[in-house]
Amino acid sequence: MKKIFMIVFIVLFAFAIVIAGIGYSVSAPGYSGEPSGNFDGTKFLNGEGYEEKSSRELIKWLLTREPGKWTEKTEADVTFGKKPANRISDSSQVITYVNHSTFLIQSDGINIITDPVYSKRVSPFSFAGPKRMRPPGIKFEDLPELDYVLISHNHYDHLDINTLQRIKEIHDPVFITPLGVNLYLNRKGISKTIHLDWWQEHSVNDSVSISAVEAQHFSSRGMFDRDKTLWAGFVIESANGNIYFAGDTGYNKFFKRIGKDYAPVKTALIPIGAYIPRWFMGPVHVDPAQALQIHKDIGAGLSIGMHYGTFPLADDGEMDPINDFNAIVGNENFILMKEGEFRVVRNN
Protein backbone atom coordinates (compact mmCIF):
# COMPACT_ATOMS: atom_id res chain seq x y z
CA MET A 1 0.00 0.00 0.00
CA LYS A 2 2.83 2.34 0.88
CA LYS A 3 4.46 1.66 -2.49
CA ILE A 4 1.23 2.51 -4.34
CA PHE A 5 0.90 5.71 -2.35
CA MET A 6 4.45 6.72 -3.28
CA ILE A 7 3.83 6.01 -6.97
CA VAL A 8 0.66 8.11 -6.94
CA PHE A 9 2.47 10.90 -5.12
CA ILE A 10 5.35 10.90 -7.60
CA VAL A 11 2.98 10.92 -10.59
CA LEU A 12 0.94 13.80 -9.14
CA PHE A 13 4.08 15.72 -8.23
CA ALA A 14 5.51 15.24 -11.72
CA PHE A 15 2.22 16.37 -13.25
CA ALA A 16 2.22 19.48 -11.07
CA ILE A 17 5.79 20.26 -12.13
CA VAL A 18 4.87 19.93 -15.81
CA ILE A 19 1.81 22.18 -15.42
CA ALA A 20 3.83 24.77 -13.52
CA GLY A 21 6.54 24.62 -16.17
CA ILE A 22 4.05 25.23 -18.95
CA GLY A 23 2.43 28.00 -16.93
CA TYR A 24 5.79 29.67 -16.43
CA SER A 25 6.86 29.29 -20.07
CA VAL A 26 3.80 31.10 -21.43
CA SER A 27 3.77 33.85 -18.78
CA ALA A 28 4.66 37.30 -20.06
CA PRO A 29 7.38 39.54 -18.61
CA GLY A 30 6.08 42.07 -16.10
CA TYR A 31 6.36 45.83 -15.86
CA SER A 32 8.75 47.37 -13.36
CA GLY A 33 8.50 50.93 -12.15
CA GLU A 34 7.64 53.24 -9.31
CA PRO A 35 4.32 52.73 -7.49
CA SER A 36 1.49 54.91 -8.74
CA GLY A 37 -2.27 55.22 -8.44
CA ASN A 38 -2.84 52.04 -10.47
CA PHE A 39 0.43 50.19 -9.77
CA ASP A 40 1.56 49.03 -6.32
CA GLY A 41 5.13 48.33 -7.38
CA THR A 42 4.37 44.68 -8.19
CA LYS A 43 1.03 44.50 -9.96
CA PHE A 44 -1.56 46.76 -11.56
CA LEU A 45 -4.83 47.65 -9.87
CA ASN A 46 -8.36 48.49 -10.91
CA GLY A 47 -10.20 51.48 -9.50
CA GLU A 48 -12.55 51.80 -6.58
CA GLY A 49 -15.43 49.32 -6.46
CA TYR A 50 -13.72 46.48 -8.33
CA GLU A 51 -14.10 43.03 -6.75
CA GLU A 52 -11.58 40.49 -8.02
CA LYS A 53 -12.82 36.92 -8.33
CA SER A 54 -10.84 34.23 -6.52
CA SER A 55 -9.36 30.98 -7.82
CA ARG A 56 -12.05 29.19 -5.85
CA GLU A 57 -14.75 31.11 -7.72
CA LEU A 58 -13.05 30.32 -11.03
CA ILE A 59 -13.15 26.62 -10.21
CA LYS A 60 -16.81 26.93 -9.20
CA TRP A 61 -17.64 28.47 -12.57
CA LEU A 62 -15.68 25.86 -14.51
CA LEU A 63 -17.46 23.04 -12.66
CA THR A 64 -20.96 24.52 -13.06
CA ARG A 65 -20.78 25.95 -16.58
CA GLU A 66 -23.89 26.03 -18.74
CA PRO A 67 -22.52 27.25 -22.08
CA GLY A 68 -24.93 28.52 -24.69
CA LYS A 69 -25.22 27.30 -28.27
CA TRP A 70 -22.67 28.14 -30.97
CA THR A 71 -22.62 27.11 -34.62
CA GLU A 72 -19.25 26.98 -36.33
CA LYS A 73 -19.03 28.70 -39.71
CA THR A 74 -16.24 28.13 -42.22
CA GLU A 75 -15.04 30.26 -45.12
CA ALA A 76 -17.52 28.40 -47.33
CA ASP A 77 -20.38 29.67 -45.15
CA VAL A 78 -19.57 33.39 -45.23
CA THR A 79 -18.97 36.22 -47.66
CA PHE A 80 -15.85 38.25 -46.95
CA GLY A 81 -16.02 42.02 -46.92
CA LYS A 82 -14.60 43.88 -49.87
CA LYS A 83 -10.99 44.99 -49.82
CA PRO A 84 -10.72 48.28 -47.88
CA ALA A 85 -9.42 51.46 -49.47
CA ASN A 86 -5.69 52.08 -49.24
CA ARG A 87 -6.18 55.38 -47.41
CA ILE A 88 -8.99 57.74 -46.43
CA SER A 89 -7.80 61.28 -46.98
CA ASP A 90 -11.04 63.26 -46.74
CA SER A 91 -12.68 64.38 -43.46
CA SER A 92 -14.57 61.14 -42.84
CA GLN A 93 -13.89 58.09 -40.68
CA VAL A 94 -14.22 54.62 -42.18
CA ILE A 95 -14.68 51.92 -39.54
CA THR A 96 -14.49 48.29 -40.73
CA TYR A 97 -15.46 45.45 -38.39
CA VAL A 98 -13.14 42.48 -38.89
CA ASN A 99 -14.20 40.27 -35.97
CA HIS A 100 -14.28 40.06 -32.16
CA SER A 101 -12.47 43.26 -31.04
CA THR A 102 -10.65 43.84 -34.33
CA PHE A 103 -11.53 46.99 -36.24
CA LEU A 104 -9.75 48.70 -39.10
CA ILE A 105 -9.95 52.45 -38.44
CA GLN A 106 -9.15 54.72 -41.38
CA SER A 107 -9.13 58.49 -40.99
CA ASP A 108 -6.78 61.45 -41.51
CA GLY A 109 -4.79 59.36 -44.00
CA ILE A 110 -3.81 56.95 -41.19
CA ASN A 111 -4.66 53.25 -40.90
CA ILE A 112 -5.06 51.78 -37.41
CA ILE A 113 -6.07 48.25 -36.42
CA THR A 114 -7.29 47.27 -32.95
CA ASP A 115 -6.52 43.98 -31.16
CA PRO A 116 -5.98 42.06 -34.43
CA VAL A 117 -6.77 38.34 -34.17
CA TYR A 118 -6.59 36.03 -37.19
CA SER A 119 -5.62 32.77 -35.47
CA LYS A 120 -7.98 29.79 -35.25
CA ARG A 121 -7.72 29.60 -31.46
CA VAL A 122 -7.14 32.18 -28.72
CA SER A 123 -4.93 30.10 -26.47
CA PRO A 124 -1.29 29.26 -25.81
CA PHE A 125 -1.93 26.05 -27.75
CA SER A 126 -2.92 25.43 -31.36
CA PHE A 127 -4.88 22.30 -30.41
CA ALA A 128 -6.89 23.50 -27.39
CA GLY A 129 -8.62 26.57 -26.02
CA PRO A 130 -11.42 28.80 -27.35
CA LYS A 131 -11.91 28.05 -31.04
CA ARG A 132 -12.80 30.53 -33.76
CA MET A 133 -16.43 30.03 -34.74
CA ARG A 134 -16.48 32.28 -37.79
CA PRO A 135 -13.78 33.58 -40.14
CA PRO A 136 -12.54 37.17 -39.97
CA GLY A 137 -14.67 39.47 -42.11
CA ILE A 138 -11.68 40.88 -44.01
CA LYS A 139 -9.01 38.60 -45.45
CA PHE A 140 -5.58 39.21 -43.96
CA GLU A 141 -4.07 39.78 -47.39
CA ASP A 142 -6.69 42.45 -48.11
CA LEU A 143 -5.67 44.66 -45.18
CA PRO A 144 -4.22 47.98 -46.36
CA GLU A 145 -0.86 49.25 -45.18
CA LEU A 146 -1.10 49.57 -41.41
CA ASP A 147 0.48 52.47 -39.53
CA TYR A 148 -0.53 51.71 -35.94
CA VAL A 149 -1.69 48.67 -34.00
CA LEU A 150 -3.52 49.23 -30.71
CA ILE A 151 -3.32 46.39 -28.16
CA SER A 152 -5.69 46.80 -25.20
CA HIS A 153 -4.16 44.06 -22.99
CA ASN A 154 -2.36 40.74 -23.19
CA HIS A 155 -5.17 38.15 -23.16
CA TYR A 156 -5.03 35.73 -26.06
CA ASP A 157 -8.24 36.99 -27.69
CA HIS A 158 -6.72 40.50 -27.84
CA LEU A 159 -2.99 39.88 -28.21
CA ASP A 160 -2.58 37.22 -30.89
CA ILE A 161 1.19 37.06 -31.26
CA ASN A 162 1.12 35.08 -34.51
CA THR A 163 -1.04 37.74 -36.14
CA LEU A 164 1.08 40.55 -34.72
CA GLN A 165 4.27 38.99 -36.09
CA ARG A 166 2.66 38.66 -39.53
CA ILE A 167 1.62 42.31 -39.39
CA LYS A 168 5.11 43.34 -38.31
CA GLU A 169 6.75 41.48 -41.20
CA ILE A 170 4.40 42.89 -43.86
CA HIS A 171 3.50 46.37 -42.61
CA ASP A 172 6.09 47.22 -39.90
CA PRO A 173 3.71 49.54 -38.02
CA VAL A 174 4.04 51.09 -34.57
CA PHE A 175 2.46 49.01 -31.80
CA ILE A 176 0.87 50.99 -28.95
CA THR A 177 0.24 49.08 -25.74
CA PRO A 178 -0.55 49.67 -22.08
CA LEU A 179 2.40 49.63 -19.67
CA GLY A 180 4.42 46.44 -19.78
CA VAL A 181 2.64 44.73 -22.67
CA ASN A 182 5.38 46.04 -24.95
CA LEU A 183 7.92 43.82 -23.16
CA TYR A 184 6.28 40.65 -24.46
CA LEU A 185 6.19 42.06 -27.99
CA ASN A 186 9.87 42.99 -27.73
CA ARG A 187 10.67 39.44 -26.62
CA LYS A 188 8.86 38.17 -29.73
CA GLY A 189 10.84 40.37 -32.14
CA ILE A 190 8.51 43.37 -32.32
CA SER A 191 10.59 46.41 -31.41
CA LYS A 192 8.59 49.41 -32.69
CA THR A 193 6.50 49.76 -29.54
CA ILE A 194 5.15 52.58 -27.42
CA HIS A 195 3.70 51.90 -23.98
CA LEU A 196 1.27 54.21 -22.21
CA ASP A 197 -0.23 54.51 -18.75
CA TRP A 198 -3.88 55.49 -18.33
CA TRP A 199 -4.44 59.09 -19.43
CA GLN A 200 -1.10 59.33 -21.23
CA GLU A 201 -0.96 60.57 -24.82
CA HIS A 202 1.15 59.79 -27.87
CA SER A 203 1.28 62.39 -30.63
CA VAL A 204 0.98 60.84 -34.10
CA ASN A 205 1.33 64.14 -35.94
CA ASP A 206 0.21 67.76 -35.58
CA SER A 207 -3.48 66.83 -35.88
CA VAL A 208 -3.79 63.28 -34.50
CA SER A 209 -2.98 61.80 -31.09
CA ILE A 210 -3.66 58.49 -29.34
CA SER A 211 -4.30 58.29 -25.59
CA ALA A 212 -4.62 55.29 -23.31
CA VAL A 213 -7.60 55.51 -20.96
CA GLU A 214 -8.81 53.57 -17.95
CA ALA A 215 -10.48 50.18 -18.27
CA GLN A 216 -11.59 47.66 -15.64
CA HIS A 217 -10.10 44.27 -16.37
CA PHE A 218 -7.00 42.16 -15.61
CA SER A 219 -4.01 40.69 -17.44
CA SER A 220 -2.23 37.35 -17.74
CA ARG A 221 -0.99 34.90 -20.35
CA GLY A 222 0.22 32.21 -17.95
CA MET A 223 0.18 31.18 -14.30
CA PHE A 224 2.76 33.64 -13.00
CA ASP A 225 2.02 37.01 -14.61
CA ARG A 226 -1.40 37.95 -13.23
CA ASP A 227 -1.80 41.76 -13.41
CA LYS A 228 1.91 42.27 -14.12
CA THR A 229 1.02 44.40 -17.17
CA LEU A 230 -1.66 47.05 -17.63
CA TRP A 231 -4.96 46.94 -19.52
CA ALA A 232 -6.52 49.97 -21.20
CA GLY A 233 -8.86 51.49 -23.73
CA PHE A 234 -7.74 54.07 -26.28
CA VAL A 235 -8.97 57.39 -27.65
CA ILE A 236 -7.87 58.57 -31.08
CA GLU A 237 -8.20 62.36 -31.20
CA SER A 238 -8.34 64.26 -34.46
CA ALA A 239 -10.10 67.13 -36.20
CA ASN A 240 -12.19 64.49 -38.00
CA GLY A 241 -13.71 63.40 -34.70
CA ASN A 242 -12.57 61.42 -31.66
CA ILE A 243 -12.80 57.62 -31.66
CA TYR A 244 -12.99 55.60 -28.45
CA PHE A 245 -11.94 51.93 -28.39
CA ALA A 246 -12.94 50.40 -25.05
CA GLY A 247 -10.88 47.20 -25.22
CA ASP A 248 -12.10 44.69 -22.62
CA THR A 249 -13.77 46.13 -19.53
CA GLY A 250 -16.25 45.94 -16.72
CA TYR A 251 -18.43 48.90 -15.82
CA ASN A 252 -17.36 51.71 -13.51
CA LYS A 253 -17.66 55.46 -13.11
CA PHE A 254 -14.54 56.34 -15.15
CA PHE A 255 -16.52 56.25 -18.40
CA LYS A 256 -18.01 59.61 -17.52
CA ARG A 257 -14.50 61.00 -17.20
CA ILE A 258 -13.64 59.64 -20.66
CA GLY A 259 -16.74 61.35 -22.05
CA LYS A 260 -15.78 64.62 -20.37
CA ASP A 261 -12.04 64.65 -21.09
CA TYR A 262 -12.35 63.59 -24.75
CA ALA A 263 -15.58 65.26 -25.73
CA PRO A 264 -17.07 65.04 -28.19
CA VAL A 265 -16.64 61.31 -28.83
CA LYS A 266 -17.79 60.85 -32.39
CA THR A 267 -17.47 57.07 -32.64
CA ALA A 268 -17.15 54.44 -29.90
CA LEU A 269 -16.31 50.74 -30.13
CA ILE A 270 -17.80 49.00 -27.09
CA PRO A 271 -17.87 45.32 -26.02
CA ILE A 272 -21.20 43.56 -25.50
CA GLY A 273 -20.29 39.86 -25.12
CA ALA A 274 -18.70 37.25 -22.81
CA TYR A 275 -20.86 38.36 -19.86
CA ILE A 276 -22.62 35.21 -18.58
CA PRO A 277 -22.75 34.26 -15.73
CA ARG A 278 -22.94 37.75 -14.26
CA TRP A 279 -21.79 36.69 -10.78
CA PHE A 280 -18.43 35.73 -12.28
CA MET A 281 -18.02 37.82 -15.43
CA GLY A 282 -19.55 41.03 -14.12
CA PRO A 283 -16.37 42.70 -12.78
CA VAL A 284 -14.43 42.34 -16.04
CA HIS A 285 -16.99 42.15 -18.89
CA VAL A 286 -19.90 44.51 -19.42
CA ASP A 287 -23.24 43.12 -20.55
CA PRO A 288 -25.33 44.74 -23.31
CA ALA A 289 -27.20 46.96 -20.83
CA GLN A 290 -23.94 48.27 -19.38
CA ALA A 291 -22.54 48.74 -22.89
CA LEU A 292 -25.54 50.93 -23.65
CA GLN A 293 -24.85 52.88 -20.46
CA ILE A 294 -21.24 53.43 -21.54
CA HIS A 295 -22.54 54.81 -24.84
CA LYS A 296 -24.58 57.32 -22.84
CA ASP A 297 -21.84 58.07 -20.28
CA ILE A 298 -19.31 59.06 -22.92
CA GLY A 299 -21.88 60.88 -25.07
CA ALA A 300 -20.93 58.99 -28.23
CA GLY A 301 -22.39 60.15 -31.50
CA LEU A 302 -22.29 56.56 -32.79
CA SER A 303 -21.36 53.36 -30.96
CA ILE A 304 -20.57 50.00 -32.53
CA GLY A 305 -20.68 46.71 -30.61
CA MET A 306 -17.80 44.25 -30.47
CA HIS A 307 -16.44 41.27 -28.50
CA TYR A 308 -19.18 38.83 -29.46
CA GLY A 309 -19.95 36.14 -32.03
CA THR A 310 -16.41 34.92 -32.72
CA PHE A 311 -15.00 33.01 -29.73
CA PRO A 312 -16.98 31.19 -26.99
CA LEU A 313 -15.25 32.77 -23.98
CA ALA A 314 -18.04 32.67 -21.40
CA ASP A 315 -21.44 30.98 -21.08
CA ASP A 316 -23.38 33.28 -23.39
CA GLY A 317 -24.21 31.59 -26.68
CA GLU A 318 -23.58 33.02 -30.11
CA MET A 319 -26.90 34.87 -30.28
CA ASP A 320 -27.32 35.89 -26.63
CA PRO A 321 -25.44 39.22 -26.86
CA ILE A 322 -27.28 40.13 -30.06
CA ASN A 323 -30.70 39.24 -28.68
CA ASP A 324 -30.12 40.97 -25.34
CA PHE A 325 -28.74 44.04 -27.10
CA ASN A 326 -31.62 44.31 -29.58
CA ALA A 327 -34.14 44.04 -26.75
CA ILE A 328 -32.89 47.23 -25.07
CA VAL A 329 -31.16 49.48 -27.64
CA GLY A 330 -34.32 51.32 -28.68
CA ASN A 331 -33.59 54.49 -30.65
CA GLU A 332 -30.02 54.95 -29.41
CA ASN A 333 -27.42 55.38 -32.15
CA PHE A 334 -25.68 52.15 -31.17
CA ILE A 335 -25.38 49.48 -33.85
CA LEU A 336 -24.05 46.00 -34.48
CA MET A 337 -22.19 45.26 -37.71
CA LYS A 338 -21.54 42.06 -39.59
CA GLU A 339 -17.94 40.90 -39.99
CA GLY A 340 -16.49 42.63 -43.05
CA GLU A 341 -19.04 45.44 -42.96
CA PHE A 342 -17.86 49.05 -42.84
CA ARG A 343 -19.43 52.32 -41.79
CA VAL A 344 -18.51 55.76 -43.14
CA VAL A 345 -18.83 58.38 -40.40
CA ARG A 346 -18.83 61.79 -41.99
CA ASN A 347 -17.59 65.01 -40.42
CA ASN A 348 -20.70 67.15 -40.68
Rank of each mutant, 00 (worst) to 15 (best):
S207W: 05
V208T: 13
V208D: 03
S209R: 11
S211M: 07
E214N: 08
E214R: 10
A215Q: 00
A215V: 01
Q216H: 07
H217I: 09
H217C: 13
H217Y: 14
R221V: 05
R221N: 07
R221T: 13
M223K: 14
F224Y: 13
F224D: 08
D225C: 06
R226M: 05
D227R: 05
T229D: 02
L230G: 01
W231L: 00
V235E: 12
V235H: 09
I236E: 04
E237I: 01
S238N: 11
A239V: 14
N240L: 08
G241K: 08
I243T: 13
Y244N: 13
A246S: 09
A246W: 02
A246C: 03
D248A: 14
G250H: 02
Y251K: 14
K253S: 15
K253T: 15
F254P: 11
K256A: 09
K256R: 14
R257L: 10
R257Y: 05
I258F: 02
I258T: 04
G259M: 00
K260F: 10
Y262W: 01
Y262R: 01
V265Y: 01
K266H: 07
I270R: 08
I272P: 04
I272A: 07
I272R: 02
G273E: 04
G273V: 02
I276T: 12
P277F: 04
P277N: 04
W279N: 02
M281S: 12
P283M: 10
V284N: 12
V284F: 09
V286E: 14
A289Q: 10
A291K: 01
L292H: 08
Q293H: 09
I294K: 01
K296H: 09
K296S: 11
D297W: 03
D297F: 03
D297A: 02
G299D: 14
L302G: 10
L302V: 13
L302N: 10
L302A: 10
S303H: 09
I304D: 04
G305I: 06
G305V: 06
H307Y: 15
Y308C: 05
Y308W: 14
G309S: 04
G309K: 04
T310M: 10
P312Y: 05
L313H: 07
D315C: 05
D315K: 06
D315Q: 09
G317Y: 01
M319W: 14
